Simulated scan of single mutants.
Amino acid sequence: MAVGHLGWARNAVGAGLGIAVAGAVTLLLVGGRAALLPFLVAPLGASAVLVFCVPASPLAQPWPVIGGNLISAIIGLGAGHALGDPWLAASLGVGIAIAVMSLARCLHPPGGACALLCALGATGKVPWGAAFMLPIAANVFLLSGVGWLFNNLTGHPWPHRPPRVPLSPQAAYSREDIQAVLADWNEVLDVEVDDLDAFVQALLRKGAGR
């Protein structure tokens, strides 16, 4: 994550641009249905935080952002129409969305919010229909497009690529050792194995330099 005033300014500017572009273009696409369809959906704000503030996170990559939000939105709408009750639809919609995102390797926290929003919308006084996928899809794709452009222009490759660090002569471990330790811990860390490997290699080289 970028630190310091410049880093936080970069993150804030990027997220603001992403939301602005997504909202403006979606509003044009919605056109005459602006009174019935939203031009921005709330989970997009959380996606913007991930895409622009932690672009190296596995949860912030293009497939999780796009697949996680869209799959969850479809599941939420489906649950709302199938069950009719907002409490049941919200509960099952979010649970199923998390399971499907995990299986599809596109786990994205805002996806849970997207499923919840759509489940509640589909059970409201004016039930949300398939047309609501238009602004949601437009929001997600536009934010991803701005994220790709902005992150790459500001030195944060997106999709993320682990840094290449020369092998340290002090390295007495392998990539499989890292995976074994993570398996022993039985925890999910929000970082890729390749990034962990590069970090340890860089750390060893720093120590060897002293």
Results as ranks from 00 to 15, higher is better:
S174R: 14
G78V: 15
I98Y: 08
L117S: 12
I66P: 05
L134R: 04
A172C: 11
L77I: 13
P110M: 09
P135E: 03
V54K: 10
L107Y: 12
V100K: 14
L83H: 01
L143W: 04
S72F: 10
Y173V: 08
G121L: 07
C118I: 05
N139F: 04
N152M: 07
L103K: 11
L153K: 02
A138R: 03
I71R: 01
A73K: 08
V54P: 00
M133K: 15
G145H: 05
S174N: 00
L83W: 14
M101L: 11
P135Q: 10
G80F: 08
F141H: 11
Y173E: 07
Q170I: 02
C53G: 14
G147C: 06
P64C: 09
I71Q: 08
A99I: 14
W63L: 06
P55H: 13
I75K: 04
A137P: 00
A119I: 10
L88K: 10
H156G: 04
L143I: 10
T123R: 09
A137E: 01
W158N: 12
G124E: 04
S174P: 00
W148P: 00
G121R: 07
L88D: 10
G80H: 04
V100R: 05
G147K: 09
P64W: 02
L107Q: 12
V126K: 01
A113W: 08
P135N: 07
I66A: 10
C106I: 05
P157F: 01
V65N: 10
F150L: 01
I98K: 09
L103Y: 13
A130P: 00
P62S: 05
P110I: 00
Q170V: 02
A113E: 04
L88N: 06
P64S: 13
V100I: 14
P135R: 02
Q61D: 00
L107G: 10
G95N: 13
P163Y: 15
P86D: 12
P110Q: 09
S168K: 04
C118A: 14
C118R: 06
A79T: 14
P64D: 10
R105F: 11
C114K: 11
L116R: 03
A138P: 01
G155I: 01
P166Q: 12
C106E: 05
A90S: 10
H81E: 07
V165G: 12
L117T: 13
N152H: 05
S168L: 02
L142Q: 06
N152Y: 01
N151T: 03
P169S: 06
C106N: 09
T154N: 04
I98V: 15
G111I: 03
M133R: 03
S57A: 13
F132Y: 15
H108S: 04
A171V: 00
A99S: 12
R164K: 14
A56D: 07
G84A: 12
Q170Y: 11
I98W: 00
A122G: 11
P86H: 13
L83A: 11
L70A: 06
S102W: 00
L107C: 08
A130M: 15
D85F: 14
A113C: 01
P110W: 07
A60H: 01
V140K: 05
C106Y: 08
L83M: 14
M101I: 01
P163R: 09
L77E: 01
T154V: 08
S91Y: 01
